[in-house]
Structures are given as structure tokens and as C-alpha cells.
Design a protein around this nucleic acid. Structure first.
Lengths: 173, 173, 173, 173
DNA sequence: TTTT
DNA sequence: TTTT
């Protein structure tokens, strides 16, 4: 379809340390659970109420996965920009099931750390590193030829190569 | 949680005429299916490929539901701004199931029609109405005290009252 | 024009304590300077470089102005959602000048505090208040009939009334 | 600064055929004027009013410039995702002047055509092409080592190379 | 399961 | 200067 946009923007806290899996050919995939919440005042009781929403975020990009693996911990506050994707799978009874996830893969995907706590003890380092994830404005790309799973969400441009290189040679930034 | 953001931005086409249901107390709820798609060139074959993603959009706001009911038809191109929400339900076997939807309810939710073709043959009418939905920058609000279902996604501000009034007295704008 | 969108999303730090002015009829207007920055690696030298961009943010909404006045201090990290607006004015030579600002006024405008450090030394207070600004998902509205200056950026819906009330009676939340 | 975001999202119409300039070393730069507008109902008179905002959009990316040059005409409806940038310059009196523009350059910049009218006669071609600009989710990159002017808004990742290649060999898509 |  |  011409001219479509599929964008999710989240700012929230990571509910648990990320899980990193690997595909058969060795590419990493990171899974995050991120909580957003909103508060409002009940019109009847006048009480303040809160509702938390949990989001599953899947990072297919290799460079970003490294960032997640090394710096994102339970409790971290993140800015996430990705796309909505619904995946179909079969449960044990063979029934179709669907899961909707926020996917960071193609062009325009971003992950930025918003708190400067990091793993190093408030050195400002974690903040600096967030600066790299965000300031580097990382763009995920699919550099492989035969995408599996949801990797169809590719994009013509964007490589992330530089970012990966950065990660290799100058972490921690 | 302090300082969280939960925002979905979609531009896509409506896959079927919207369904409008009503709650027991008479408030309307509109359901839309919106398709976004992306194209890319396969790195191996060099072929252009396309993948379509379908999104379920639920409109809880009364004013916006009227807009949807009257003007949104199959094929319409929409700009949608809402929030991600995952709803839990039980299937016939009593198993927990989850559905993730883009909800237009609280503050910041928007629906704008992007094509001026409408259903009436380029009358400018559909476009004009899009102008109102967009230009009016409609904000959904929950004006009831005992929200049911997912209406917990309320917000302190936003009324939409003006918009509703507009709809009542001067459609088609 | 039908179906237009004018949206600015910023996450950055406040460069100085906000200025609060008042219109002749007493409504507050807050001015903020917000810095965003990005870093990248120079392709030639391999050096890491950084560029900071400064944004002028103008808050016309009364409730949000109170939030700014009371809680936003130099150094605060904010999430801002507003609209671009270019204002024309005359300099001392009578020449036309233009200033482009990020305006928080109408529907969809948001200001959320992203750091929980606040002005009091990790009291959690600033964070809590951010939770209200964000969680309450405040929507600015123009409740006056004869808008001056850039107040043309009104909107049919959105009142902010509740938010103001909240501010009045239960600060600090 | 760590963890900042600078994002502008516009949907509007192009006010005039784009201007394409070239830098000394031959890279193209496209300038667009885009109008957004909003309508609202005056609270006193009850009249419907409209205000149009004009935005200057500067495209530094070579691939996107080609898209603009070939397909974007006066009146086209575009989706734009870029960053705010304020440029300093001297007027004829030597006074400092500032211009704020929406820049499409680095990672995350996008331009998508939202109408299928194009220059080819409503063949669906323009729509198809929008699909490529959008679906290809073009990401601008700075492939040169010594950025001049505002090219400091670079980014580590993103090349746009594929997109350019696509443009070269298979326009009109 | 986060955060405030 | 666009668009409705």
C-alpha cells in the first residue's frame, strides 16, 4: 500500500532484565517488557487511579541487541520507537494464536536510555551511553538475504553498520 | 509510573466498513481494521516485496465514533493517533487470551481522514469532514464515572464536547 | 485544509529556569528553552562529535503553565509534544522578523517530566509530579473567545479543566 | 546530552513546486514549503475558523532529493518526518538572523506521498511511488566526511544507498 | 514484571 | 504559497 506509516513511541520502564536469544545463524534477538502507565482522577470518587500497560518489545537489530544486552537492566527507563507487528503462532492444541509486539528492526527504529543510572553507578556513563544510542539515532537494518520470521520488516536504507562498528571498537563509548 | 508515553501513529487504509457496537448504557464503540504496508527490495533476489500489517483500532470516544460511523468506509485512508492496549479475555475453552489493540479514547487520540475522495464521488465532502476531524483535533475523553472494559484508559482532561456539538448541529460541516 | 498534522516531539533538557509572563487579562504564558543533542562519529577523523539544538517552547495552557512554574527548573529533562508555529514580529528597524516556536496550546499538547530528581534532592517529588503531568495526559485548551497572538491554535475539544482543578486542590499530588 | 529526541511529524500540502539547489560538490538540497492547517469553532461567534501554518522543509539526503525532484509537485500531500533545526545567518545589515527548518537528513527522516495524483495522471503510479518512498522507509545519511552548513546533523547509521540504487535502476518503481 |  |  502506498504511503503508510506504522509507528509506536513508548517511554516506560523495563520490567525485567532483557532476554537475549539467538537465531540458528547466530543473530541476536532481544526481548523486553516495558511498562507504561497513566494516572487520572476518578470523576465520581475523586480518587487518583493508575493503570499500567505492559508492552512486549522485540529487537531484531544486531547493534541494538548489543546495546540492550550490555546496558538495559530491569527498571531502566527507555524511549522506544518501533513498529507494531502481529505474529501468528500455534498453541499446544494447534490453535492459531496471535501476539502483537513492538518491533525494532527496520528503518526508524530507535532505543534511547532516559536514565543515567546504568550499570556503572551513576557515573554519568550510562547517560553518556544513552547519548550514543539516542544521539547516534540508531537505525536497524536487515543485512541478511533470507529473512525469517518477521524479518520481512526490512527497509531499503539504513544499515546500522556504523553503529555496530562503534559498538565493537569503542564501547563503552 | 511517572513520565510514561504510550503512543501509536498509523497511516493506512481501512479494510472493511467499520463496526459500531454499543455498550449497555448506550455509548458507541467503533472497531476498525487498518492495514499498513511496507515494501523493500530483497537483497538476494533483488525483487521488490511487500508486507502488510493489520491493526485493530477501537474507538471509545463518542464524538469520534460518530465520525467513524458516518464517514469512514472501507478503503478510506486514515491518520490515527492512539495508544496500545492489551485486553485479556477467555476463549471457549476457558483459556486466557490476549488481544492488543490501538485504542482511541483518552487525551491525544486523533483520527483524521486523509483522502478527499470519500464515498460520494469527489464531492469534497469526505475531505471536508477530514478537515474537521483533523483540524478540530479531536480529543477523546471519558465522561463517565464507572469505566468498564478498557475504559480505564481515561484521562483527566479532554472533553470532546465541542466536537460532539459540532457534529450534531452542522454536519456535514 | 483537510487532514493535516503538525506535531513536534522533543526529549531534552531545560536550559534555564522557565520565564512566566502574563497576558493583560491575566493568563500565564511560559517560555522554555530546551536542548536536544545528537552525537555521531565523523567518517573521516573517526572522532565522536556532538551537536546541540536549542528549541523555544511556549506554553499557552493555563494548567500546564502552573506545572511549569512550580516544577520545571533548569536542567530538568522533559518530554514535550506540541506544534510548530512561526510568529511574525517587527524588529527595532521595523523589519519583519520571524520566530519559530514549539507551541503547547491546543489539543494533543503534552509536557511530561522525565527525571525524578526534581529540585529538592531526590525527593521523588518531581517525579511524582511528572507522573501527573504525563499520566493525566494533559490537553491544552483555549477557553477564551477572542484569542490574540498565536492563540488561533485552538481546538474544538480538550479543556484541561480537570487538570487545573487537580492542580488547585491537591498539589503536590 | 544523553537520550534526547528531536522529531517533527507533518502532514500537509506542498505550496509550490520544490526548489532543488546543489552544493559545490554536487550534492542536491531540496526545499519545500508545506502548509498545515487547523480549523476550530469560535467560542463567541460560533463561526468556523481556520489557520494555516507554513513550514520550511529542507531535504539534504540525496536519494530523497531525487524523489522530491521527480515526484513532488505543488499541491501534493506529504507525510514528513524530520528534525527541527535553527540556522543562523546574517542579513544585509550584518545582523544575526535565525531560520528554523524541518530537516530531513539523518536517521529517522522520512517523506511519503499521501495522494495518488502525482504527475502521471492518477494512474496509481504516484500512489505506488508513495509506497516506495514510504514503504522503503527511507533513512537519510551523511556519506561525506566534511559536512558543511547544517550537515552536522548527521548520524552514525543509515545510508540510503539502497534507496538511491533503487531510484537509479527502477524508477518509476 | 517496571516506575511514581 | 497549499488544501478543504
Amino acid at each position: 500500500m502506498a504511503g503508510s506509516v506504522n509507528k509506536v513511541i513508548l517511554i516506560g520502564n523495563v520490567g525485567a532484565d532483557p532476554e537475549i536469544r539467538r537465531t540458528q545463524d547466530g543473530r541476536p534477538i532481544a526481548n523486553l517488557r516495558i511498562a507504561t502507565s497513566e494516572t487520572w482522577r476518578d470523576r465520581n470518587s475523586g480518587e487518583r487511579r493508575e493503570k499500567t500497560e505492559w508492552h512486549t518489545v522485540v529487537v531484531f537489530n544486531e547493534g541494538l541487541c548489543k546495546v540492550v544486552e550490555q546496558y538495559v537492566k530491569k527498571g531502566a527507563k527507555l524511549y522506544i520507537e518501533g513498529a507494531l507487528q502481529t505474529r501468528k503462532w500455534q498453541d499446544q492444541q494447534g490453535q492459531d494464536r496471535y501476539s502483537t509486539e513492538v518491533v525494532l528492526q527496520g528503518f526508524g527504529s530507535t532505543l534511547t536510555m532516559l536514565d543515567g543510572r546504568g550499570e556503572g553507578g551513576g557515573s554519568g556513563f550510562a547517560g553518556g551511553r544513552g547519548g550514543n544510542a539516542g544521539g547516534g539515532d540508531f537505525g536497524g537494518g536487515d543485512d541478511y538475504g533470507a529473512p525469517s520470521q518477521s524479518s520481512g520488516r526490512s527497509s531499503g536504507g539504513g544499515s546500522g553498520g556504523n553503529f555496530s562498528r562503534d559498538l565493537d571498537d569503542d564501547i563503552p563509548f
